[in-house]
Amino acid sequence: MSLELDIRMTLGAGRRSFTLAAALASRGRSTVLFGPSGSGKTVTLRAVAGLMKPSAGRIVLDGETLFDAGLGVDLPARERGVGYVFQDYALFPHLNVAENVGFGLGRGLFGRVGAASKRRVLELLDLAGLTELAQARPGRLSGGQRQRVALMRALARKPRVLLLDEPFAALDPLLRQRMRREVRAICQAAGAPTVLITHDPDDVLEFGGTVALYETGAVRQVLEFPDGPEGGRAARDMLLAAHFGAYAESTLAPCPGGYSQSCETTQP
């Protein structure tokens, strides 16, 4: 996967307005947008998904221009081939688990699901260990089960990239550990590259890859680590160091894990 974006947008007006100016480029199986709440990570993700329209700039995914203000290109969300796992999972409360997972496979105005798609839904449910809950409504599920349903629903359409918005924030700490590993394993099995948003360095541990550091509406820095847990450890150590105010030093010093890294600084 390759994702290139350079966008500007202003939300709200007057004193409470917020301006996002984010630029980053990433190739590889994992990208992490890391930064405190309100630094513009979610807005970036929504812009990639086509749920928000930047005022300027461009977004290119795998060589296809999804958005370009200059050229007047703005693909609607449904045509972007991007999977999105929402922070609150956004499961359809009136549909059962199987219908939720199969939603993206529906065709036509009423979203009819064909026989082949139904088989795919069963496969996905099996992969996530949700087979017994196929007929249950989301209201009856636990946090971890809801997350799996949201994940499978997004993966059902075989997206080019899976966008994960703070996927572990709503889970209790014990479950969080397990779901990190599980989500990554499922994404890997499905062959879907991920773009993950988080403010928790522990989330980076499992994913690694390209890490973009967000601060007050801008990407301060883009760091490259190997994908997966091996790169994740180095990335987490660095982010933890940053938490303790040693941010500038640690980016200059060699990584504790000894991994080579290319640190490119984007304009503030």
Binding site: G50, R78, F86, F103, G104
Partner: peptide, 9 residues
């Protein structure tokens, strides 16, 4: 929005 990202018009 979830439905839109899932390809629904």
């Amino acid at each position: 929005n979830a439905a839109r990202t899932l390809g629904a018009g």
